[in-house]
């Protein structure tokens, strides 16, 4: 039995005014141990801020789409922007320009507030194609893309392992349990890119690093987006953190010697710990 072939993509369309916006989060490096402060927020060290590793695939995908379709790649990030290093690195990879949304009132924003702010900025940018990563490496939420899509009243093609723009539509492939499915939506649309796209994010070249220094980065505040401080930040969040405990990496380290009877011991372990 043969499944039908996927649809063929029509002729590629180049549009010099196409606006591809990549939403990039600045995350703390995963190499450094983390702790919460008395305010129950992550203790941040500005010098260990990196591009959310999942967003590197997204930036790469944005640049590849631009190479095919034309237009600009704009990096949009909401955050403290303490160092701007991640933004400069994204520009050094080849993005056209950056927008940083930063405002003291944004501190403590939850995913809903983040989506609200990104949606307002994306509307202001008049984005045609918006790309997200599959999740942030600090919260593993994977939820900001759908929140943003809802605030924009737009379709979201999530978890893409392939992205194709043709005519006024964007089509993605997504891995299914068996094979893959495709999903198509009219532009403007949002796409979240799965790590499994495996598109080898490029390293900034020496020339890229030099030109990035002169590329424009705009900073927008809540007022620039017409948002009210009461809609964002810690005050608007409906979730509360009440405490935290470090997870012990200590393990039981029970050792069973020899092959004979070992399977029985493992089996008992599975039953004892309710794994089967």
């Amino acid at each position: 039995m043969h499944a039908p072939s996927p649809p063929a993509f029509p002729q590629i369309w180049r549009n010099p005014t196409l606006k591809i916006v990549v939403c990039m989060k600045e995350t703390p490096s995963t190499e450094v141990p983390k702790s919460l402060g008395a305010d129950m927020r992550l203790v941040r060290n500005p010098s260990d801020t990196i591009i959310n590793p999942f967003d590197e695939y997204t930036i790469e995908e944005g640049l590849r789409q631009q190479e095919k379709l034309g237009g600009d790649v704009i990096i949009l990030t909401m955050g403290p922007g303490t160092t701007n290093d991640p933004m400069r690195r994204a520009l050094a990879m080849g993005a056209t320009s950056g927008v940083l949304v930063s405002d003291p009132a944004l501190a403590g924003s939850d995913a809903v507030a983040t989506g609200r702010v990104l949606a307002a900025a994306l509307k202001k940018l008049e984005a045609d194609l918006v790309l997200f990563g599959q999740s942030s490496a600090d919260a593993y939420g994977g939820i900001v893309p759908s929140i943003t899509a809802e605030f924009m009243g737009m379709p979201l093609l999530s978890y893409a392992t392939k992205v194709e723009v043709a005519g006024n539509n964007v089509t993605i492939e997504r891995e299914a349990e068996v094979g893959y499915t495709t999903a198509t939506a009219p532009l403007p649309a949002l796409v979240s890119v799965a790590k499994a796209i495996n598109n080898n994010p490029r390293y900034p070249s020496m020339k890229g690093i030099m030109t990035a220094k002169k590329k424009p980065i705009e900073t927008w505040t809540l007022a620039d987006l017409g948002l009210d401080a009461a809609q964002v930040g810690a005050g608007a969040a409906k979730e509360r953190v009440t405490g935290a405990t470090p997870v012990s990496t200590q393990r039981r380290r029970e050792i069973y010697n020899g092959s004979a009877g070992a399977a029985q011991r493992i089996f008992e372990f599975l039953v004892e710990n309710k794994i089967i």
């Binding site: 990496t249 393990r251 039981r252 380290r253 029970e254 050792i255 069973y256 010697n257 020899g258 092959s259 070992a262 399977a263 029985q264 011991r265 493992i266 089996f267 372990f269 599975l270 039953v271 089967i276």
Partner: peptide, 28 residues
């Protein structure tokens, strides 16, 4: 690997795995 496991078996996987599979299948 024995320094960061909960249960470690010093043994031959070629013996242990098929036996374990059988035990799990029967149990299920």
């Amino acid at each position: 690997i024995f320094t960061f496991c909960d249960l470690g078996v010093v043994g031959d996987l070629k013996v242990v795995i098929p036996e374990l599979t059988k035990l799990v299948e029967d149990y299920k």
